[in-house]
């Protein structure tokens, strides 16, 4: 493994680790109040590693919902990762399948966003491991810490830190938007569609993000294909 690019990955993933800190801490705390032992809570962060699904499972567990329904809900909530890892695969360096199977475990909305918006053409395996490792460590460690201390951060800090992951998404998106109309269109259209699903309540969050993303990506691709074709025809006419 390339040590240097692993360290670069750790650095690139640091803002995820900071963003996970308050979310994992609160998860540990809520798990405790829902009656989970420290091992039960930490094991969920170790083996499942999916923020939204873990929060949802706490609510369902405390309501005594059928475990099969909890698993089904988890699947629906994470179905969007099919799309993300398929997209990420186009950007990842070619690698043995079992190695990709390991870092695949570390792909979340956040690590996907950090990796997929990199400027370089191909991303190295060690870099992906670095990003995944620091984010995962933060998630697992602060779940346990939250359970042990059984208290939250001071209210003002907890509130302020809840913005961290969104600030990171903004920080990943805006530089790519600069001078790139396609990126602006992709983000805006997906945001509008997602807002529509959210406020009308037609789709649950898991589906909503998936459908909004896919619809925007396909729509913009069609627009650009038509645009390219027109330009080519105009060019040919001029040539003749």
């Amino acid at each position: 493994m390339n040590n240097n690019s692993f360290v670069l990955g750790l650095k690139a993933g640091l803002s995820i680790a900071i963003g996970y800190f308050p979310v994992a801490l609160t998860f540990g705390l809520l798990a405790k109040t829902s009656g989970l032992s420290i091992w039960e809570a930490t094991a969920m962060s170790i083996f499942v590693y999916a923020g939204a699904a873990q929060y949802m499972s706490l609510t369902l567990i405390s309501k005594g919902v059928d475990p099969i329904l909890i698993v089904l809900n988890t699947f629906v909530l994470n179905i969007r990762h099919f799309l993300m890892t398929a997209a990420l695969n186009e950007k990842m360096q070619s690698e043995k399948r079992w190695i990709k199977g390991i870092y695949a475990f570390g792909i979340t909305d956040e690590s996907f966003s950090v990796l997929a918006t990199r400027k370089e053409d191909k991303i190295g395996t060690s870099f992906a491991f670095g990003v995944a490792f620091i984010a995962y460590s933060s998630w697992v460690i602060f779940t346990a810490v939250g359970h042990v201390i059984g208290a939250n951060l001071p209210q003002f800090l907890q509130a302020a830190m809840s913005i961290a992951l969104y600030a990171m998404f903004v920080g990943l998106l805006v530089p790519s938007m600069r001078g790139n109309r396609k990126v602006v269109m992709l983000a805006l259209i997906a945001a509008v569609i997602n807002g529509f699903f959210y406020w009308t309540g037609i789709l649950s969050t898991g589906w909503s993000i998936l459908v909004a993303t896919l619809a925007s990506a396909i729509f913009v691709e069609i627009i650009y294909a038509i645009h390219e074709k027109r330009k080519r025809i105009a060019g040919q006419l001029k040539g003749a």
Binding site: A116, L173, K182, L186, A187, T213
Partner: peptide, 16 residues
């Protein structure tokens, strides 16, 4: 289409 996904995802993750 897959190359468009990262930027569309970010839009949907951020808003609303």
């Amino acid at each position: 289409v897959l190359r468009n996904i990262p930027y569309a995802v970010l839009g949907a993750l951020i808003f609303p």
